[in-house]
């Protein structure tokens, strides 16, 4: 125990095994992300949108929530979040390659998650709309006494949308069990935070009568703590919480974006040094949970999983063209027509 902070995770109620799993999930998301970028650059796929720099916060949040019980309304960078609540890297690759076996059947851009079985709610591209859906899920939870929370994420750019503010107000009025988490990665495509957000995102909570908490998004355990407290508040009927996790988008907005048009290499490098995965790795070493040998083993395992997933998705068939005509409406009256 070389660090004074070693053991923080146990104080928060996390076991060593869970903490190691958190690290594995962050690494898996990172390796998927790097591979997806390469695959797109090789011309095999159309588009990738990266989450590099945001994994620690996503995993921290996911571990504070209950899988297949709480509802998850992720935004398009939440690979580490969806990997932590049930999706596999193979499923992410199938979405990247737009293959028939993709949960969305190749209909949506990659990053538009949805998986009913895992309570991951289907997403669209207009940003912030999912915040209202999260409020709807939390209203359902309250009316039907489901004792679950809705957890929704969005960027600081989306935090300006009317739907986000309408959602805050609605949830505040009825003290609904919903957790709003802004992944403030400092850029909305090319526009930096100071030109995007007047004041601070976290302070907006005060305007709606519920607490706002600002946390270091590179510190997975800090995010875990904030989300866990927010969940407890929500379930005891005290209402919503807004968490602003401050981080940095290391990659360009997407594979279609050249970030050197609006920021410098030096700025990106500075933030790369603050990487939440590297600091979590150091923490695990300090706690004696991870050592060089185990780290190599974990990394090899993650790399193998990503390789196999990429190979599988590459070889998987595309949807049949006429699939395009299906599922506009329920196929038959009387049943819900859904798969899961």
């Amino acid at each position: 125990m070389s660090s004074p902070h070693a053991g923080r995770h146990r104080q928060l109620g996390l076991t060593d095994e869970q903490t190691l799993q958190m690290y594995t999930n962050m690494l898996l998301a990172r390796k998927f992300d790097e591979r997806a970028t390469l695959i797109q650059r090789s011309g095999k796929t159309a588009f990738h949108i990266s989450s590099i720099g945001q994994e620690a916060a996503q995993v921290g949040a996911a571990f504070a929530l209950e899988k297949q019980h709480d509802y998850f309304l992720p935004y398009y960078r939440d690979y580490a979040l969806v990997l932590s609540v049930g999706m596999t890297v193979r499923e992410l690759m199938l979405a990247l390659f737009l293959k028939a076996e993709d949960v969305n059947g190749g209909r949506q851009m990659p990053g538009h998650f949805g998986y009913r079985k895992h309570h991951i709610v289907t997403a669209s591209s207009p940003v912030g709309t999912q915040v209202l859906h999260a409020v709807g899920f939390s209203l359902m939870s309250l009316i039907k006494k489901q004792n679950c929370v809705a957890f929704v994420t969005f960027g600081e750019g989306a935090s300006n949308q009317g739907d986000v503010h309408e959602g805050f107000n609605f949830a505040g009025v009825f003290k609904l069990p919903v957790i709003f988490m802004c992944e403030n990665n400092r850029y909305a495509i090319s526009v930096p935070e100071h030109r995007q957000v007047a004041g601070r995102v976290v302070d907006r909570a005060a305007g709606y009568g519920f607490p706002g908490v600002r946390v270091d998004g590179n510190d997975a355990l800090e995010v875990y703590r904030a989300v866990k407290e927010a969940r407890e508040r929500a379930l005891r009927g005290a209402g919503p919480t807004l968490i602003e996790a401050v981080m940095y988008r290391i990659a360009p907005h997407s594979t279609s974006d050249d970030d050197m048009l609006y920021r410098t290499k030096e700025e990106v490098e500075y933030h790369r040094e603050q990487d939440g995965i590297a600091s979590f790795r150091r923490y695990l070493f300090d706690c004696g949970i991870l050592n060089e040998e185990l780290d190599r083993h974990v990394t090899d395992h993650v790399n193998r999983e990503v390789n196999e997933a990429a190979k599988y998705a590459d070889q998987a068939p595309y949807p049949a063209p006429e699939q395009a005509l299906l599922h506009v409406y329920a196929e038959s009256a009387g049943d819900d027509g859904c798969r899961s």
Partner: peptide
Amino acid sequence: WRVLDTPLTESAIVGVAIGAAMGGMRP
């Protein structure tokens, strides 16, 4: 709760209904 007065926000009235509907209700 079943005849719910909402704040004056049309997008929320519909958006919240959509979420509740996906959650198994019939708003």
